[in-house]
Each structure stands twice: as structure tokens, then as C-alpha cells.
Design a protein around this nucleic acid. Structure first.
Lengths: 148, 148
DNA sequence: ATAAATAGGACTATATAGGTACTGTTTAGT
DNA sequence: ACTAAACAGTACCTATATAGTCCTATTTAT
């Protein structure tokens, strides 16, 4: 089905929520409650997003998380790779030689191009875009009708 | 990592091999031997590709598989959805209401757009493209540099 | 001091993907 | 007709990785 992991989906929900009030700071419990996601899972995701430098955190009472950058400056691609690692559709597109065919494989280089195209599609959409429903951002529209 | 399934990767290898000799017919055993993929796996994949009408088959001695259409006319997207089902990055982008938030979820509609962009990227590359290594097809190039 | 919060890691269960096996059907050649 | 090659369909097993939980620091406002 070529889907992103469920945790990644959750992560984007979290980020989108934070993007709606970029100034405010949210505790993991608040987010879990509001988005109906189990608290431990939320906590885990926020930690990963923090390590990817997409969030800033304040510890102690009254602490919480908030976006490290403006909603406009964080792309969906960044959120996805923070949770799933770099976007690469195939093993061989990821670099090292896991593929038995290696040199003789014609498809390899083309998968790299496709992976890149997908990455670009994810980079074209920011959290700010995701936060406001109607969304017909220029990038996305451009990406939509591409086939001649 | 947003990767396609390993089986899908195998499937494209099979299709690309067939695309190099569109006139010939290949037995499952031949393909398995040449591509170094376990025969049962190859057989399973060929069956799925057949059901998706991407292949034609001839039964009995001397039988085998060959492409149902010209290599130029089969896209990577078709191969991917034959194995993994329709391309949809999130549950909610697939249609029915698995998402608890449903109406209130701003991100949903945007995921649909992103899914579509990814689908378009996959549709832009044909088996003919994949078969010949250098590949700088117009479509793919266009998809590459999209970020302003 | 205490309680509210994040930080980090280890651990477990389960779903799914990947792979296998078995049985049936078709067809060419002898 | 019989045999063997090859596809067709289905059902099953297993290994891995995802999803989720828990526990134990550490920090800080009151």
C-alpha cells in the first residue's frame, strides 16, 4: 500500500497541533488527551522529534514541548525522516550494497530518482500547510498534475 | 524509512526483466534462476501480477509469462499497486473512516494530496524507463527539481 | 521537599511481510 | 493415453519489525 508507519502519522498530528499554536508550549499529557493517542506513545514520539531538532523542550513543572522553528519552515519530509529515517523506497536507493545484483542492476539508479521525487513531494508541504485544511498551496498543486 | 515492500522490489525486477525482451516468454523458473530470487516467491509474484492484468500467461509445457502491454505503457505505479494495493500514505487517505478524528482532522485532506503527488511520481516512470539504465526521462527530470 | 514534567532506555506483544507447501489444471511430446 | 512441464489457487508457517508499555533518572516551579 506504500503507506507511512502509523507512528509517523501520529507524529504529524502532534506537529500539526503544535503548529496551530506555535507560541504555546504543550505537555505530552495535554497532547495525548487532546489527540486521543496513548500517552506513552506520544511521549516516545516527542522524544524522537526532539532528537531530530524539530522541537524544543522545557523540563520540570510547567514545562513542555514547542516547535523549534516556524510552522512554515518545517516540512512533512522532516517529520517523516525524524521517525522513519531517510526517505528511500528501496534498500539499494539507501546507499550501501544490500542488493545482490549491484552493478548490473538497471533499476537501481531509477529507484533513486523515484525516491527523490517522492522526497521532493514531501518537502513541498509544510506544517503550516497541513494545519490549515483547505490548502491549495502552489507547490502541491504543481505536483498534482504532472502527467502529460 | 518510507520504503516499498521487498516483494514489490522483486516484482519490479521481474517486470523490468520481461520488459527487456517483450516478445519472449519466460517461465517462473527461468526468472528465478536469472534474478536469484527464490522460485516460490517468483511464482507468487507472477500470479499477482497476472491477476492485475499486467502479464499474460500460457499454461502447459513450454508455457510462461510475458508482458500484457508494451513496456512503455506500464508504469511503476501499476506494479506497486498490483503488489501492495493502491498507493495511499495514510489510512485516512485510503477512504473509509479508520481515523478517529475524521471530520475535525485538518491533516487528512492534505495527506490525500501528498499521496497523490507520490502516485504521480510513480506513474511518471515506465518499465521502459526502468529497463534502460541512464534514464533522464523528461518526466522524471521535471519531478526532480521542484522546490523553489 | 514535593510534585510535575521531560530524558533515556529496555522490554514485550502483535501484526505483517516474507517465504513455503500442497493440490489442482492445462498442454506438449512421446 | 500417459507423462512431465508449467501455470493456478489456496492455505499455512515463521521471522522480523512495528507498536506499545514500563521503569528509572533528571530537572525545575511552587
Amino acid at each position: 500500500m506504500l503507506r507511512i508507519a502509523k507512528l509517523t502519522d501520529y507524529a504529524t498530528l502532534l506537529m500539526v497541533r503544535l503548529a496551530r499554536d506555535p507560541a504555546r508550549s504543550f505537555s505530552a499529557a495535554q497532547l495525548a488527551d487532546e489527540l486521543r493517542i496513548p500517552l506513552p506513545t506520544v511521549a516516545k514520539l516527542l522524544k524522537r522529534l526532539l532528537q531530530a531538532h524539530l522541537l524544543t523542550s522545557v523540563r520540570g513543572v510547567g514545562g513542555g514541548y514547542s516547535l523549534a522553528h516556524a510552522p512554515r519552515a518545517i516540512s512533512v519530509a522532516e517529520v517523516v525522516s525524524a521517525i522513519e529515517g531517510p526517505v528511500a523506497l528501496t534498500e539499494c536507493a539507501r546507499g550501501a550494497g544490500n542488493c545482490s545484483l549491484e552493478g548490473g542492476c538497471a533499476a537501481g539508479s531509477n529507484w533513486k530518482l523515484i525516491s527523490r521525487a517522492v522526497r521532493v513531494a514531501l518537502e513541498a508541504v509544510s506544517l503550516a500547510d497541513m494545519a490549515m485544511p483547505p490548502l491549495q498551496s502552489v507547490h502541491v498543486q504543481a505536483l498534482q498534475e504532472k502527467k502529460p
